[in-house]
Amino acid sequence: MASQRKRSKGESLTLRYLILGGWALFCLAPVLWFLSIGLRPRIEIITPQPIYIPSFSLDAWHMIWDDWPMAAYLRNSVAAIIGSVIIDLVLAIPAAYSLARFRYRGRDDIGFYILSTRMMAPAIVAVPIFFLFRNLGLLDTIWALMLIYAAINLSFVTWIIRSYMLDIPKELEDAAKTDGAGEIRILWEIIIPAVLPGIITASVIAMIFAINEFLFTLLIASTPDAYTMSVALSNFTGGSDGVIYNAIALVAFLAFVPVFLVVVAIQKHLSRGLTMGAVKG
């Protein structure tokens, strides 16, 4: 990490803090306002005149647990996310090991193919994927969500882990080899422990993308059997009630808090993870 750098000629501190402070305000104001939406009674949300100083109420909290199958949404999200991350790691760790530590024909093309799946717009494959899962009888199940989240994140996870594996000094492996260890044992006993930060970073980013996923979930899920929090939000609307914004806001914060804590914990690795290893932050 860079130490504190000196100021250059002609740079004004006032301007710096005006700009940074201004952006911080721009980031936080909508968040705080939305929090106030989550903690106000329903009648104070959509009014002829917006209410800026609302009264406090836990209406939304009771509503999401009592009137809505929030527990099911939460369970579906967590199960689909954990399942997909496990599938990703099982597939990605050997693949990354192969791409990072072996030389063979076609390696770069295989690597790029894996990367290029990240470029596929979900909408492009949406129709066929929908029929695929329908034919498999997996529509409206968390199994379908698991499989699709895993597919979306696999390129990311593989490339992040590969990037960390490239950093391991070759000597470490050679030493183990002269001791007679096989490739698989080297992977298990030396490489995986050494790239653990990369594996954790990749898992966290995969988790965020899985929580956020919207289009596939919208197509696959049609009942609380498979609704996740992300798509359930768009169902807090309906009929004469209109959009139930206080419940939406509260669910948004319920999902935000764990993600925020985990991301702060891996902050140091975030830039590297977000660029699939291209930037070593």
Partner: peptide, 19 residues
């Protein structure tokens, strides 16, 4: 601080702006 908006679900962010 700057990271915070990125960590909300996009569907939630959409509703913030819709409201």
């Amino acid at each position: 601080i700057f990271l915070i908006p990125m960590l909300f679900m996009p569907s939630a962010v959409a509703f913030i702006y819709k409201l």
